[in-house]
């Protein structure tokens, strides 16, 4: 087991990708390996990319891999795509845009499926970040599923969050709604050569102007960067290098204003929540499923013989004896 951790520390892709797989598949031994991994983490700068489907997140990730590699930094990528709620299957296609880096030993790209998680990530993402961190990746890019308005889980895992937008997605009321626009460290207006990009920029500026000072921790006001057409390689790669510099600047800001601690506490709380869920809720549900009780209970609910609240209280008293 310690051997496994050593291999991961030495950057061994096979061991790392297998461990991520075991985490996803809920293999019990994997969690005990994570116990040895956890104390070794804390080296990487975690950068999240979120935004609507088709905004160009994967293409930006590909460009950012290039930009960070040119700075001499190693890169891990976790690309999340949705799982079918009906069959449990998934098509993980983000990697198509990143295949030119497949053979670069300084780059490790791993696709993961949401497997039912709702916040734009998958339950394995937190552990996958730890694993890439311990492999020694300097920057870890986490690409969420194509998001709507509310999938903000990435803010709990990433130091720097890029919200990637494209022109023409809606009127200016969208910009004052709560949710995803609030979590940006940096806004990216992608496909900026398209009609409407100046209007989108104005809306974002207005939105930021109306925000209270408290929305800008340490005085960081999210910059709004435009990225030009990815089919014009020179302009696009210039935009992306500027973006990479801005990402670095944000991290330096977090460090210089001693904001990393706040962030770590938030991340620890999220991970602890998730771990408690794994340790308490999952075994209970598995138990109820294995003895067929769960199906029987659902039957009783359908027939209105009882209600979900009473049933949940019954389960809680049965399994959590110490709670009053």
């Amino acid at each position: 087991m310690v051997d496994k951790v050593k291999k991961i520390q030495s950057g061994d892709v096979r061991s790392a990708s297998r461990l991520i797989r075991h985490i996803e598949d809920n293999v019990a031994e994997a969690r005990s390996t994570m116990k040895d991994i956890f104390p070794l983490t804390g080296h990487s700068h975690v950068v999240g990319l979120t935004g609507p489907p088709g905004a160009g997140k994967s293409t930006l990730v590909d460009g950012l891999i290039d930009a960070f590699r040119k700075m001499g930094r190693t890169v891990g990528v976790i690309a999340v795509d949705p799982t079918s709620p009906f069959t449990g299957g998934a098509i993980l296609g983000d990697r198509i845009r990143m295949q030119r880096h497949a053979e670069d030993p300084g780059v490790f790209v791993r696709s993961v499926a949401t497997r039912g998680a709702l916040g734009g990530l998958s339950r394995a993402v937190g552990d996958a970040i730890h694993i890439m961190d311990v492999m020694g990746k300097d920057v870890i890019l986490v690409e969420t599923v194509g998001t709507g308005q509310q999938e903000v889980d990435i803010m709990h895992y990433a130091h720097t969050v890029l919200v990637v937008l494209i022109p023409g997605m809606g009127d200016d009321i969208q910009a004052i709604k709560a949710g995803i626009l609030e979590i940006a460290s940096i806004f990216v207006i992608n496909k900026a050569e398209r009609e409407g990009s100046s209007k989108l920029r104005r809306e974002l500026v207005t939105m930021l102007n109306m925000a209270p000072e408290s929305a800008f921790p340490g005085g960081w006001r999210p910059p709004i960067l435009k990225c030009d057409n990815a089919f014009e390689p020179s302009g696009f790669s210039q935009s992306v290098s500027d973006l990479a510099l801005s990402i670095n600047e944000h991290y330096e800001h977090l460090v210089s204003k001693s904001l990393i601690g706040n962030w770590s506490a938030r991340k620890a709380a999220t991970e602890f929540n998730e771990a408690i869920r794994c340790a308490i809720l999952d075994p209970v549900l598995n138990d109820l499923m294995a003895n067929g009780e769960l199906d029987a209970m659902i039957g009783r609910l359908v027939n209105k013989e009882t209600d979900p609240y009473t049933l949940a209280e019954e389960i809680a008293t049965r399994y959590l004896k110490k709670m009053t």
């Binding site: 079918s84 299957g89 098509i91 990697r95 198509i96 295949q99």
Partner: peptide, 12 residues
Amino acid sequence: FRDAGFEVIYTG
């Protein structure tokens, strides 16, 4: 394969 419940990585 997706419809069969597999996770499919397509690389183009």
